[in-house]
């Protein structure tokens, strides 16, 4: 059974295959791949840290306006959602371009998304709830828009914690299943944003994000159906035997 090991070893195997197709020495291709990935990773670090740096600088230099918390909350929330969507576009990117090295960019992207979600949550807890647990719990229970946003954050916690190679190995096929939680987290996140924006009558941005998310999820549907079909076929085959 090759399937269960896909998450970890598949990546390297595919990388290897892609490299050997180039009819040159395998070793130097791996070096090129590594170089590409390094460049991309540096790019991701710079891009992902820039909204945060802009906010921190703005907070101290005063360019966030009279209500800095509103800007902090909005930008960290927005960045979380954008990074979740970028994380979700790695698989389509990999399939469409055939560049399997892309998979190695998924973890840093996902972790940055979680980082911004964590900051977003803490801004809310510190500045809006003023460290008051009772207020916080009340808000989570009473307001669906908060419930949904908080749930998205809670779903992301175990994903971030199990993002290491060690956990991938330990969980095996369960790791893949667990990390499908990102689909739900991203959906809840977009709903959370939509609900808030709807109260302010301007839903253009959340609708744009919802559109991107739909495309990314729909892209996966044929694969899911195919896998399901194969699974059913396999179990039926077993029954006949």
């Amino acid at each position: 059974m090759a399937m269960p090991r896909k998450s970890l070893t598949f990546t390297q195997a595919w990388t290897f295959t892609a490299g050997s197709k180039l009819h040159s020495s395998i070793g130097s291709n791996i070096v090129i791949q590594k170089h590409q990935i390094l460049v991309c990773k540096v790019g991701i670090w710079i891009a992902a840290l820039s909204p945060g740096s802009w906010l921190v600088a703005g907070l101290f230099l005063g360019w966030l306006g009279p209500n800095p918390v509103e800007t902090l909350t909005h930008i960290t929330g927005m960045t979380t959602l954008v990074l979740l969507l970028v994380t979700l576009s790695i698989t389509p990117l990999r399939r469409i371009t055939g560049w399997n090295g892309a998979i190695r960019l998924r973890r840093p992207l996902g972790l940055f998304a979680f980082f911004y979600a964590l900051v977003h949550f803490n801004i809310w807890f510190v500045f809006d709830q003023v460290f008051n647990w009772r207020w916080m719990v009340e808000d989570i229970i009473e307001r669906p828009y908060i419930t949904v946003g908080f749930s998205a954050f809670v779903i992301l916690v175990p994903l971030a914690l199990t993002s290491t190679k060690g956990w991938m190995r330990r969980l095996g096929v369960r790791w893949t299943k667990l990390h499908r939680g990102i689909y739900l987290a991203a959906t809840l996140g977009v709903v959370h944003f939509y609900w808030l924006a709807n109260s302010k009558a301007d839903v253009r941005l959340p609708l744009l994000l919802a559109l991107c998310l739909s495309v990314l999820l729909l892209y996966r549907v044929p694969g899911w159906l195919e896998r399901r079909r194969r699974m059913i076929a396999r179990s039926q085959g077993r029954n006949i035997r």
Binding site: P66, F127, D139, R143, S199
Partner: peptide
């Protein structure tokens, strides 16, 4: 429906 009206943020304060 989205937030409590019991407290407010007195700008330019950070805390609600």
């Amino acid at each position: 429906p989205r937030w409590s009206q019991a407290r407010e943020r007195r700008l330019p304060s950070l805390f609600k």
